[in-house]
């Protein structure tokens, strides 16, 4: 979400860095990595961060279930809204609050946070605070479709779709079919 709020909605000059096929491949790889790292999907709980982390988490969940049919798709995926934990609330107009939906409990689970763009890391810091108010997971991991660098906090992703070297002034935007008209990752630079 780090750069998901562009100053303008004009993305005509933007460059496509990931297309539909690449996004699908990246998600499939991440799904396998999650299962491999956690030796199966029994305790895994994918929590998507609104707005675009939520459809990504659902797509990952569908892939986990494809690999391990014993998993119940409704038990492995949820959403985690972090609006009320942000550290920049006072610097923006009031944001509307998204939905937090946790299937069952997060105690003892391996929570995998899912977001579209990893940028400053502040969203993830807020998510960690939100999680600790909800319970005590055994571990928290992080999956991001795009890691664009420029971290402002000691946070790193466990699973990354694509590392995208960017400059601070560039803007990165993820489009997903569930909310937009197509699947794509766009980048708009100052020299574009």
């Amino acid at each position: 979400m780090g750069s998901a709020t562009p100053a303008s909605d004009d993305w005509s000059a933007a460059r496509v860095v990931l297309g539909e096929a690449e996004i699908a491949r990246a998600l499939t790889r991440i799904a396998h990595e999650i299962l491999e790292r956690n030796k199966g999907g029994d305790d895994v709980l994918l929590l998507g961060i609104p707005t675009r982390g939520v459809p990504l988490a659902h797509r990952l969940a569908a892939r986990l279930v494809e690999v391990e049919p014993t998993l119940d798709v409704r038990r492995v995926v949820g959403s985690l809204d972090i609006t009320m934990y942000r550290d920049d609330l006072h610097h923006h107009p009031t944001r509307s609050i998204g939905t937090t939906e946790i299937p069952g409990t997060i105690d003892g689970k391996v929570v995998v946070l899912v977001d579209d763009v990893l940028f400053s890391g502040r969203t993830i810091r807020a998510a960690l605070d939100a999680i600790s108010d909800l319970g005590r997971p055994r571990a928290v991991q992080l999956a991001a479709l795009v890691d664009r660098g420029h971290r402002e906090l000691p946070i790193r992703a466990d699973f990354v779709g694509k590392n995208l070297p960017t400059s601070q002034s560039e803007r990165v935007r993820v489009l997903l079919r569930e909310q937009d008209d197509r699947d794509a990752v766009l980048i708009e630079g100052d020299d574009a």
Binding site: M84, L89, H90, H91, H92, P93, T94, R95, I97
Partner: peptide, 9 residues
Amino acid sequence: LYLLLAGEQ
């Protein structure tokens, strides 16, 4: 309270 106080003043 959230809508009146949380955002930019």
